[in-house]
Write a protein that binds this DNA or RNA. Structure first.
Lengths: 215, 215
DNA sequence: GTTAGCATGTAAGGAGTTACATGATTTT
DNA sequence: AAAATCATGTAACTCCTTACATGCTAAC
């Protein structure tokens, strides 16, 4: 038992249920709104995942309100158990490739509110180096190539490089604002830290708005 | 036989081998340079794929040069057969979801040089509507949501929307330049069409360079 | 009263990855 | 002669999708 469903869905489900109890159908809609620009999950993966989490005692069915007719229930609302919350914290504390790779970074970022400041920083930096490696690798491989590429291939390269460079710049802004907000000496308790983050992110957004003096 | 390995690797391999014969190891490096910003393949998928293509007669081992010592050969260089070229054309002619979804669009675009102008246009437009659907879906779902999100979730949304919007603008440029180059009445043969495309893409790049008057 | 959307599930399978195993060839 | 990297391959596994099956509930 406690079979560690290594995928990204586990975190997505636990994280969502931590905010509020939900049933499968709506849970999926939430996830596909939250992560819609990056990926989408199907019922065929969600329901088995819920069953697994239920088996492992990480979630339980919530009691339906008293007035519901007994024996008939079409919605199954799940909520986190204590073990579920523990497991979620465990997942949110892992600052490794499983947090900053393409498939997983978005979900980890989405729940940064529940992640320690230190871990947030290491994940952001991890993702940045991952992307920088990628840029490095492709750039040097490209430099070694003597045959010139056709215009479509070139355009694809250009667009790909630009997209990754943009994400690196975005990460730079985020890392800066994280550093700034954790550098403030006061406020190690939860409430104040939260408003610090809010402010820091706002600053980052404002900077990003300005037309960039690139390069 | 002729087991249609539905994945994206088949196209990637056939397309690469169409340009020049290669052995597995180098083929992988090429692919990971070509598509490095989007995805990366491992040997564990490449070699089985090559075996499958060999079984189906789409590729063959190239004869080693005569002076090579007989019976000893560490590199296995593959090249396309006539059937392989046919299959490649078949794959490049399909203008459907299998061409414009996230996992496959890059590879299809990379080989646009070998794709008919009409098909190119339909793939670009297909991808654009796919992305626009995604924008629509998330935007309306977001509008229906009454509870306000935390700053990290918001920032993720913002970044995601922006990235997709950028790709849509990129596609718009590409579609425009495709339209312009196929609209020219002369030149239906290969040579002239090719230089038209080159020019059109250059124009698109130049426009993209200018600071955008956004919105 | 029938379409459309809500709600839950399952079986089969696809498209890859990881980790391992092995050996040749080049570089230091 | 050691280390790096070139080169080929396989077995087991992972995570997720597709397609199917079912029934409830609200809207028109």
């Amino acid at each position: 038992m406690t079979g560690s469903r290594g995928g990204v869905l586990e975190l997505a489900v636990l994280g969502s249920l931590h905010e509020t109890p939900l049933h499968g159908y709506e849970l999926r809609k939430r996830l596909n709104t939250l992560l819609g620009m990056f990926r989408a999950f199907s019922y065929g993966s969600l329901y088995p995942c819920l069953r697994g989490l239920l088996n492992d005692g990480l979630i339980v069915e919530e009691e339906p309100p008293a007035e519901t007719v007994l024996g008939r229930r079409s919605k199954i609302v799940y909520k986190l158990t204590a073990e579920g919350k523990e497991r979620l914290q465990e997942l949110l504390t892992q600052a490794g490739p499983s947090a900053w790779e393409d498939e997983s970074f978005g979900i980890h970022f989405a729940f940064f509110r529940h992640t320690e400041a230190e871990v947030r920083l290491r994940i952001l930096e991890g993702r940045r180096s991952r992307l920088e490696e990628r840029l490095e690798g492709v750039r040097t491989a490209l430099a070694r190539t003597r045959e010139r590429l056709d215009s479509y291939t070139l355009e694809l390269q250009r667009h790909g490089l630009e997209s990754v460079e943009r994400e690196v710049r975005w990460l730079n802004e985020l890392i800066d604002s994280e550093r700034r907000s954790t550098a403030t000496p006061r406020a190690e308790e939860e409430g104040a830290a939260d408003s610090d983050q809010q402010q820091a992110l706002q600053e980052a957004s404002e900077r990003a708005e300005r037309p960039e003096s690139d390069k």
